[in-house]
Design a binder for these strands. Sequence first.
DNA 1: TAAAATATACCGACGGTCGGTTTGTATCAG
DNA 2: CTGATACAAACCGACCGTCGGTATATTTTA
Lengths: 212, 212
Amino acid sequence: MKNTERTETRKSEILNIAESLFIEKGYIHTTINDILIKSGISKGSLYYHYKSKEDILDDIIKRIGDKKIEAANHIAKTKGIDAQTKFLQAIFSLNSSDDRQAQLTTDLEKSSDGQMFIKSLADIVLRLAPILLIIVEQGISEGVFTTVYPLETVEILLCAAHALFDNGNLAWMPEEQKRRLSAFIFITERALGAQEGSLTELSQMAMPDEGE
Amino acid sequence: MKNTERTETRKSEILNIAESLFIEKGYIHTTINDILIKSGISKGSLYYHYKSKEDILDDIIKRIGDKKIEAANHIAKTKGIDAQTKFLQAIFSLNSSDDRQAQLTTDLEKSSDGQMFIKSLADIVLRLAPILLIIVEQGISEGVFTTVYPLETVEILLCAAHALFDNGNLAWMPEEQKRRLSAFIFITERALGAQEGSLTELSQMAMPDEGE
DNA sequence: TAAAATATACCGACGGTCGGTTTGTATCAG
DNA sequence: CTGATACAAACCGACCGTCGGTATATTTTA
């Protein structure tokens, strides 16, 4: 195996283990030693690949973001789908794109870690907004959306979605969470100036009863 | 001076100094020693009053939240003001309630501290939503607002506002920030089902050119 | 009311943890 | 052989929090 390949696999090994630990215990409460023990590598080796603990986090955030962007991009570029459906799909693809990420919402408190949250918020908003913007603009030209603030609307919705649904700190009952999701779709509808009920209807078709 | 009084003044001394340091350098980058040096007290004394660094932060968040709640409550309970005006005032009172807090938005990076952000987010959303709900319900009964999700709408708007305007990590140009503010008001308007342009108009009257 | 007993407020040295560095070594391509 | 890559382990210093002990009020007792 070539060295560079080995480096990449080594790096993603570290990344995988660190990610699961960060999700499990939170960034702050995961020590470098935890990562070393679980991965079986030595400190020198870890710091050969990553220059700091925060560096590892950044890479994890980026990798998660990449997946989401890819998914969103794929949706945005698909032909023959109306803008409303695309927008809903793109928004929903944010949450459950990663299996383990689901825990983050479920395992309360554990992930009450600010670092991860704020970094992924910034990452998602800055990198994903331009993609959702494409969808919204498609909707505007199709006449199903109406707004003079397409980019800002997307940014605001992304902020809200992330704070609401990817945050262990705002621990809520499943029933409340369900209402909040309905409300979010409803507000999205209004914010984008879509036909009253259009997105709500679509979302109910897409997930008739996904309340677990 | 009675001992209990002394304790209270001592605690608020610590709180004041810690708060200014946290705002200045961020929670993580402020050390306990920083607080000790600036306040002139000893370590043992500090840990007599507070059991941990995070404990101090929690108290600060709570105190800031208390101020905001008081302000919002005052607005909500005032008679003879229409719901739209109240809502705008309440939302805006969140940002500039504390003078120093303003820096938090301005001094980029310094406060890119996840702990403070996520804690104050949870605090604001959980404690402030019920108050804003009162205003929205007033608006509904006055016929100026229309929504079947009053509480959830408020929660979502608060999340968005906090993530957008109280977050150093999403560093934006003043011009962008201004557009975002306009967009936020616009979306609030639509989310609450208010008359198109009503809130925007009010906000322009209240702060014709508060740029900078 | 003065001494004794107790509760409250405060001090600073020390311990242990943790992120990060430095130094040393093995492997391998050229 | 030699330089670069990959890894290992001892080491460092910053930092949070603890602990034994002291000083200053407050209450109790005689």
